Simulated assay, not measured.
Amino acid sequence: MTTFQHLDIPTLQAWLDERRELALVDIRDPMSYAQGHIPGSRRLDNDSVGPFIDATPRERPVVVVCYHGHSSQQAAAWLAGQGFDAVYSLDGGFTEWQLRHPHRVEA
């Protein structure tokens, strides 16, 4: 069974600093996303997931962000099942990212 991996915040920070090519998706509600999100992330919902899957190379790492790192695990497992090679759920979610990196949040 295809599965996802857990990703900690320091690793994501390093990947972003290295400008590593990845797909960073945020599954929180539209208002929360609009109020603040990790730079470079795109909001993913039921309407946008189809085009995202069609447009994203399967070998590109996908990092899923939610509020606290819980619902992102289900979304990451589902995306892994769509054939992506490497799917990650961000442990601690956006809440922990914002706490550790308040200067790395954009609205």
Rank of each mutant, 00 (worst) to 15 (best):
M1D: 13
M1S: 14
T2H: 09
T2G: 05
T2V: 14
T3I: 09
T3K: 15
T3D: 15
F4N: 04
F4H: 11
Q5V: 01
H6Q: 14
H6K: 13
H6N: 13
L7F: 08
D8Q: 12
I9S: 08
I9R: 11
P10F: 07
L12N: 10
W15L: 13
L16Q: 12
L16V: 13
D17A: 10
D17H: 08
D17P: 06
E18L: 12
R19T: 14
E21K: 12
L22Q: 08
L22M: 08
L22Y: 03
L24E: 04
V25M: 11
D26F: 00
I27V: 11
D29W: 07
M31N: 15
M31C: 14
S32Q: 13
Y33H: 14
G36I: 04
G36K: 06
G36P: 05
G36V: 02
G36L: 05
H37Y: 04
H37Q: 14
I38N: 00
I38W: 00
G40P: 15
S41M: 01
L44H: 04
L44E: 04
D45E: 10
D45W: 04
D45I: 03
D45A: 03
N46D: 14
D47M: 09
S48F: 13
V49F: 12
V49Y: 07
G50E: 15
P51F: 15
A55V: 09
T56S: 13
P57H: 05
E59Y: 04
E59V: 08
R60W: 03
V63E: 01
V64K: 02
V64H: 03
V65F: 05
C66M: 10
C66G: 09
Y67G: 07
H68Y: 14
H68N: 14
H68G: 14
G69C: 10
G69D: 15
H70F: 13
S71V: 08
S71L: 06
S72Q: 02
S72L: 00
S72D: 00
S72E: 00
A75L: 03
A75H: 02
A76T: 04
A77F: 08
W78A: 07
W78M: 09
L79D: 03
L79T: 02
L79N: 03
A80C: 06
G81P: 11
G81V: 00
G81L: 00
G81W: 00
Q82I: 00
Q82C: 12
Q82D: 05
Q82E: 14
G83H: 01
F84P: 05
D85Q: 12
D85H: 08
V87L: 03
V87D: 01
V87S: 01
Y88R: 01
Y88S: 03
Y88P: 05
S89E: 06
L90N: 03
G92M: 11
G92D: 15
G92Y: 13
T95G: 06
E96Q: 08
Q98M: 03
Q98F: 02
R100Y: 00
R100H: 06
R100T: 02
H101P: 04
H101I: 00
E106L: 02
E106V: 12
